[in-house]
Amino acid sequence: MEVLMDYIEFWQERYPSILEYTWQHLFVSLVSVILGAVLAIPLGIYLTRIKSKAIKNITFNVTNIFQTIPTIALLALMIPLLGIGMKPAIVALFLYSLLPLLRNTFAGIQSVDPEVIESAKGIGYSPIQRLMQIEIPLAFPYIMSGLRITTVYIISWATIAAVIGAGGLGGMVIAGLGFNDKFLIFTGTIMAVIMALIADFLMGILEKKVAYK
């Protein structure tokens, strides 16, 4: 009970800074995912349009390599290029977001029944109309679930970005570890979990809304 009272007091005292850490975290995560989506979704679609196996393989392999670099190492690699702070963190997380987004978009477009495409073609849809009105809507559930998974991952990975000065909830955890403050560690962790759950929940709703029967 006493712990709970202390914890409430901790919140009363610290809420402006907790909110700031949370906001930094949300900002870094969202910007990374949005940038990732802006590049990976059109790229994923483009890859379904080209015949060259080599380009496909290269693209997937490169994004796959980004994915396999340990987070902390990728962040470290970013520093000589981009310095410290949010910028390198966003770039690193952006690179992480590419593969799942790319893969889901590609798979989504590929999953569209060739018969459906054939009939759309046969009754006079132009290539762009086919893409916008048939293929993308049909691939949307895949794209959305890619976006959802990626967002949840990125929110989780963004905690480590605190070591390069990007702030965020990881900053609370590291500070808490540094001088043995369990409230800080707990709050940083739980806020990141809550943020990931909320993002998952909201995007789940969106996913259901846009999905056809």
Partner: peptide, 21 residues
């Protein structure tokens, strides 16, 4: 080609209805 196709009806084997419409 696209203008032509819009003036010719087309029915395919596996129906090819648009499942999301």
């Amino acid at each position: 080609a696209i203008d032509l196709r819009r003036t010719i009806g087309y029915v395919i084997q596996h129906i090819g209805l648009f499942p999301h419409m």
